[in-house]
Each structure stands twice: as structure tokens, then as C-alpha cells.
Design a protein around this nucleic acid. Structure first.
Lengths: 239, 239
DNA sequence: CAATGATAAAATGTGTACACTTTTGCCGCA
DNA sequence: TGCGGCAAAAGTGTACACATTTTATCATTG
């Protein structure tokens, strides 16, 4: 008898490796812009700071370089790549296409009950974040989370490793990451939340073309919001 | 006066590193399908085979894993990922979008004289490859090269590292790589060559939207060619 | 005979030493 | 002062040894 409880298929990865953990930490740090663009990463110094040996650190750096998050020069080590403005704009164009494809695939393949639930939760979280009762300073963080969750569900539903990878590298430009989306005008955010609902409906109704169209439009709208916000920032700097 | 000839800006990388060279070799081998999908790569064995030490080999493997060309499991090493049929189809969808964007950017930004020349050379090479005088067995290799050159020029002209990276991972599925394109029906290849000319004209005439539309259509046509060819192959296998 | 558990072999992860390259800083020199 | 050029220092690349984990083998047991 003694039916041993089989560990769920999704969690046999209790044990990770130091390189893996390091790669995660550094990836997050890079996306958060913790390292200035163009700066060199000194291996021995970084290793001391992170309290690890050079070997797993190098492993992590090689991986991140493969992902395009770092640049490597033969006897000169790893550097944080600098992104031009046009690169940022291109990233949004590419991301619009990739997110659109993800939405289309999600609509074609349909949502499992679990994913549908998560998406509805994300939308509800967004509602709460945008409600008048919510304190302004909490709003940004809350909405950023809801926004990221919404997109993450679609990425999963698309069931394509390749599309996920493409989206990942589209967001390797810090400024385009989902976390930064919140820094914009409140009205813009409301419009984008409405777009989320439309996209949700298109996916639920299994309308791939419509889902793709809406999602593309949505991401390009985010691009415009960002451009406008950058303009304001620059205008502010001039004072 | 001994004017020391300054090495051109593009070639101060005479010295490379073993990891780098290994990564190149392995990348090529993987794209050529030299390793069966799903197989594990034994580090010590591979190191002996390639006559290198484990350290640079591991460095190369980490990089390739970052690029998505290999999969890594914590205490189990590196494996060649298996691609489902739907993954291959998805890759073409994504590639159509990315190549389309590249064509659009190229049309927006225009071609330098050098690039324009290279593109015309590639088209002329394609003409020669498809001429009736060309021996059938040489045709494939010749056209594959011309085809790759044509697309490479557009990728360069787009001037976007991100788009290049996206295209790279779209072609990490061996079957979608430019080299394999030639295995199809000759009439199909002729049609695609004609499409190349149209795309060239759209770019020269600085018509971004048209260039993008044509390129998308072109890549999706390649997808259909491939699907048809796969069907024939399978039908042949059944005999 | 199948299932189980101990044990050995093999494979991967990490620490460290050292070779080679790049960078830095210093000194002589015009 | 400014400019090579040389030597020391710093930094990266590679080799190898060892620790830890996984995998294979095999005897034991019900």
C-alpha cells in the first residue's frame, strides 16, 4: 500500500546550482538597471561582492552574454551594452509583433481553466489598482504587477518556447520592461487596462486575428505613452 | 616616416579565445543537425573529441544554452532540445514577422552603396543558380548561398542588434535555417527568387510598408513550401 | 521474479593555481 | 610639456583537482 506521494511534476527542481541562482540575481539586477550602461564587470570584484567564487560567476555571465544581456570581448571581459534610443524604439516594434503573435496563439490554443482564472485575477487586480480608493503611491507597484501577470498568462498560453524567448530579449532593454510601464500618465494606464479587457475577450472568444490586432495596437500604444513620458521628463530636465 | 598601418576598425579581433571558437564550431554543428535531438552532451567525452579542456568547453556550452540552442538541467548537464512540429511552424510565423520588420527598417533607413551592391550581387548569384545551364546538383548549394546573402544584407541594413538576435533564435530550429531552404521544389524556388527582386525594389524605393508586407508573405510562402516538401517526404517514407 | 536498497562508477559543479593578455603607471627623452 | 616605451599590476582564459550529485550495478529480500 504505502502510496508514496509523488512529487508534482513541476517541482523536482528543489535543488538548484549556484550558477543558476547567480544568473537569476544578475539578470534581475541588469533589467532593473542596477549596472550603468557601458560599464565593465570586474570578475574578481563582483565575485567578492556576491560572495561566490569566480567559476560559477563566470558561468552565469556566459549565459547572460548568450542571452544578449551582456556583451563579451575576448580578453577584456563582460560589459553592459549601451542601448541607443532607436534600439529602444525598435524593441517596441518587435515586441508588438511578438506579443501579437503570442495573443494569436493563445486565442488559437485556448486557455486552460487555471490560466483563465489567473488572467481574470490579473484583470481584477488591475481594477483594484486603478480604483479611486487606492493610494497614488501604491498604485504603480500594484498595477505593474497586474500588468506583468496579464502578459505572463498570455505568454504561457501561447505554448511556444521560441515566442517566450523572443519576448524575453525584447524586454532586455530595461526601459521596455513591464515593470517600468507604470511610470506614465494615469489616463494612459486606464486606456491600457481597457485594452487588456478587450484582448482577454478576444482570446476567450477564440478570435486569433482580433487578439493579435488588439495586442499589437496595445503595445504600440505603450510605446507612444513611453515616448510622451520621456518627452516630459526631458522637458523637466531642461528647467 | 613609418606610418604604421592602422588595422581597420573591424579587425582588431585577430586574437580570439578557445571558448569563442568552440562556441562557433558547436553552434554550426547544432544548426547542421550534427547532434540528434534530445541527446545529452557528455562534457568529458566531448572535450576529448574536440581536443580541448573541459573549462572552455563548458564556457561555450553555457553561452549556447543562453542562446537557447541547448537546454541545461542542473546536475544533469546539457541536452539538445527536441523541436515539436508546432514549434517549427511557430518559428516560421515569428520569423515572418521579424524578417518583415527587418525589411521595413531597411527600407526606412536605406541601403549604403556597399550594401546595395552586395544585394545586387546576391540577386545575380541567384539568377545564375537558377539558370537552365546550371547543373542540378550544384544548384542547391549555389542558391542557398545567394539566398542567405540576400537576407543577410537586409539584416545588416536594418541596423538593429535586437532584430538580428530575434532572427538568430528564429533560425535555431535546424529545419528553418536558410541552408535547408534549397531542398524544395524548383518552381517554388523560382517564385521565391522573384519575391526577392520585388522586396529589393521596395527597399530601394524606400517603401517600408510594402517591403514589410512582401517579406512577410515571402517567408510564409517558404513555410508552405517546407510543409509541402515535408508531406512529400513523409509520403515517400511510407513506401 | 520483481522490488528495493546499498555501493561503486561516472558525470557535473566549484575552488584554486597559473599562463597569457591588457591596462596602468612610471621614467627617460626629445 | 608631451611622447614613446618599458615594467609592474591587474584582469581574463585555461587547466586541473576535488566535492557533490546522478546513474549504473548488483546483491538481498519479500
Amino acid at each position: 500500500m504505502s502510496e508514496t506521494v509523488i512529487s508534482p511534476a513541476s517541482s523536482p527542481r528543489s535543488a538548484s546550482t549556484q550558477s543558476r541562482l547567480l544568473a537569476e540575481r544578475l539578470r534581475q539586477a541588469l533589467l532593473d538597471g542596477a549596472f550603468p550602461a557601458g560599464s565593465r564587470l570586474n570578475e574578481v570584484h563582483l565575485a567578492r561582492t556576491l560572495e561566490v567564487s569566480r567559476t560559477p560567476l563566470r558561468a552565469a555571465l556566459q549565459t547572460l552574454a548568450g542571452e544578449g544581456l551582456l556583451h563579451h570581448t575576448p580578453n577584456r571581459g563582460f560589459t553592459v551594452p549601451e542601448q541607443s534610443l532607436s534600439a529602444i524604439v525598435d524593441a517596441y516594434e518587435m515586441r508588438a509583433l511578438a506579443e501579437g503573435l503570442a495573443a494569436r496563439l493563445a486565442a488559437e490554443r485556448g486557455l486552460s481553466d487555471a490560466l483563465r482564472q489567473r488572467m481574470e485575477d490579473a484583470l481584477a487586480d488591475g481594477d483594484r489598482a486603478l480604483a479611486p480608493e487606492t493610494a497614488d503611491d501604491a498604485r504603480r507597484g500594484l498595477y505593474a504587477e497586474a500588468n506583468a501577470a496579464f502578459h505572463a498568462v498570455i505568454h504561457e498560453a501561447a505554448q511556444s518556447q521560441l515566442v517566450r524567448d523572443v519576448l524575453r530579449i525584447c524586454q532586455r532593454v530595461p526601459q521596455t520592461s513591464a515593470h517600468n510601464i507604470v511610470a506614465f500618465d494615469l489616463d494612459d494606464v486606464r486606456q491600457r487596462h481597457a485594452a487588456h479587457r478587450q484582448i482577454y475577450e478576444a482570446i476567450i472568444c477564440r478570435e486569433p486575428r482580433e487578439a493579435e490586432r488588439l495586442m499589437r495596437q496595445h503595445v504600440l500604444a505603450v510605446k507612444l505613452s513611453m515616448a510622451r513620458w520621456f518627452g516630459q521628463q526631458r522637458a523637466g530636465d531642461a528647467n
